[in-house]
Design a binder for these strands. Structure first.
Lengths: 260, 260
DNA sequence: CGACGTCTTGATTAAGTTCAAAGTTTGTGG
DNA sequence: CCACAAACTTTGAACTTAATCAAGACGTCG
C-alpha cells in the first residue's frame, strides 16, 4: 500500500533558559483567552521544564506508556499512527498553542506518536497535570475539555476529506486550513504567505494519498495558479478557487480559545 | 464521487416515563466507574428529560446552533458530516453510554450531525451542563475530558483505516471494533453474535468506500468464513484472521470508563 | 564529489467507483 | 394472508482514480 521511510535522526537539543508562563510568547497573540493571575500561576506550578526539539524528533513514541503532557510553544509537529508494515497516517498537524498528550488517557499507552516538523519548543507538564488542572481550576479543566473537543473536530474534518474528497479536493482543503492556522499565529497576515515546513510526503500521509499522486496533484493545482509552495512558504494565489474545490463553508476568524 | 440517499423519515416518538440516574440501566454493566452519591445527584440535577427516538431520526442537525447535550441510554446512532453534493462520511458510531455533543463547542454550530440507527433513548441535558459539571465536580469534569479524548482516539483509528488500509482491512477492523463495543454492552458475551443494525451503506459511509465495493468486499470475507451478518446480528467466525487482516494489536478488555 | 532526501515525470497496473439491473427482505394496507 | 412498495443486497461490466514502478533532476551537507 503505502509505506513511509523512517524519520531522519539528528543531534539531541542543547539546554536553554526557561520561559515563565506570564511571559509566554503566545499570550500577546490575542488568539487565546485572557487568563486570570491565578490560572497563570496554576499552570506555572504544573510546568516542569521546557524541551527544545529539532526537526524530525519524536516527542512521543507510539505505544509509549509514560509520556508527559506538552504544550507546543514554537514550531510545527504532527500526530501519527503506523501500521506494522510501515504505512503511516498523519492524524493532525500541531502548531504553537496546541496541547499534546490528552489522548493517552491516564497511564495508558500512547495510541499515536508525535514528531516535529521544525525546530520546536515545548512546555513539559507533570503527568498528573491534567487532573490538577481540573481539580484546582474548574475553568481550566473546562478549557482542556474545549481544546480536546476542538482537536477532535479537526480530526473529523480530515476524516471527511480522506473518506469522501478526491485528491484535488483534499489538497485544496488542507492548504486552506493550514494556511489559516499558520496565518493566525504570525503577526503579519497572509500577505507574503506563511511558513510551511511540510514535505510532500507529509501531505500524502496526512491525506491518505501516495507520494507520487500527491506530487502530481499539487503540481496541477500550482499550474492552474491556485497556490504556490516555495522556499518553505505557502502562498495561496486563488483562495476562492481553492475553497470552491474544497467545498469549505465557514470562513470567519476562529473564536479565541484557551491556552494551557 | 459517492452521494448518499436521504435518511428515512418516520413518525415522532411518544412520551414515556423517565429513568432516574440512580436507576440508570447502564450502571449495572460494570463497564463504567462507580459514581459517588454526589456525582449521581449532580448529573440528575442537570438532566432535563429523556428523548425517545426511532431509527433514522436526526438527533442533531449539521450546523444546528442550539443542540443540547445527550447521553445515549439505549440503541445505536452515528455522527456524520456531509459535503454539499451529498457525499457523506460517518465519523463514528455511538452506542449506549456515549456522550453526544461536546464537540459543538459552546453555543457554536454543530460541526456534524447525529442520527439514530435503531430505536433509541437519550438523556437530555441542559446546554450549560458541560460547564456545571466542571464547576460543581472536578472529577466529573475530568471524566468529560476523558470521554472526549476517548472519542477522539476512536476517530483517530478510523482515520488510520480510511487513509491507509485497503477495503478488506478496513472492513475487518470495523467489524472487530464494533463487535467488541457491542459485545461489552450485552450481558451474554459474543456467543451468539451481537446486534448489528448497520446497513451496508452505513459501513460504506463509515469507511470511505462505495456501497458496491463494500458489498463485494463483505461478501468476500463472508465467503472465506471470516464473519457472517444475518437478521441484524453480527457473528465473527474467525477473529484471528480478521485481526490479522486488520493489523490490530491491543486486545485486552477496555478499561472502565466514566459515564455522565 | 558523493550520499541522501526531496521533487518531478512517464508508463503500467490495480483498487475501487460508477452504471445498470435483478433479486431479496421488510413493512404496510387491504 | 396476500400484494405492493420501499429499502436493502447482490452481481456483472465498463471506467477512473490513484497506486505502484522506474528514473532522472535538483539541492544540501559533510
Amino acid at each position: 500500500m503505502n509505506p513511509t521511510p523512517p524519520p531522519p535522526p539528528r543531534a539531541p537539543p542543547a539546554p536553554v533558559p526557561e520561559t515563565a508562563c506570564r511571559d509566554c510568547p503566545l499570550r500577546p497573540l490575542k488568539l487565546f483567552h485572557e487568563p486570570t493571575g491565578e490560572e497563570l500561576e496554576l499552570v506555572q506550578s504544573l510546568k516542569r521544564r521546557e524541551r527544545r526539539l529539532v526537526p524530525g524528533e519524536v516527542l512521543i513514541h507510539e505505544g509509549q506508556t509514560d509520556a508527559p503532557l506538552y504544550t507546543l510553544l514554537q514550531g510545527w509537529a504532527f500526530r501519527f499512527k503506523t501500521l506494522s508494515d510501515g504505512r503511516r497516517q498523519i492524524l493532525s498537524f500541531l502548531l504553537a498553542g496546541d496541547f499534546i498528550g490528552v489522548q493517552q488517557k491516564m497511564g495508558d499507552a500512547a495510541a499515536h506518536g508525535v514528531e516535529t516538523l521544525t525546530d520546536a519548543l515545548a512546555c513539559v507538564f507533570q503527568r498528573d497535570a491534567l487532573w490538577e488542572l481540573h481539580r484546582r481550576s474548574p475553568m481550566m479543566g473546562f478549557n482542556v475539555t474545549w481544546l480536546t473537543a476542538h482537536e477532535e473536530s479537526m480530526v473529523d474534518d480530515t476524516l471527511l476529506s480522506v473518506g469522501r474528497r478526491s485528491a484535488e479536493e483534499r489538497i485544496a482543503s488542507l492548504l486552506i486550513l493550514l494556511f489559516k492556522r499558520a496565518g493566525a499565529l504570525q503577526l503579519d497576515a497572509g500577505a507574503g504567505g506563511v511558513a510551511f515546513p511540510l514535505t510532500q510526503q507529509h501531505i500524502a500521509d496526512g491525506l491518505g494519498l501516495s507520494l507520487v499522486h500527491t506530487n502530481k496533484t499539487l503540481r496541477k493545482l500550482e499550474r492552474h495558479g491556485l497556490h504556490r509552495i516555495a522556499e518553505g512558504r505557502l502562498y495561496l494565489r486563488d483562495v476562492k478557487a481553492l475553497a470552491r474545490l474544497a467545498d469549505l463553508y465557514g470562513d470567519g476568524r476562529p473564536p479565541p480559545r484557551p491556552l494551557v
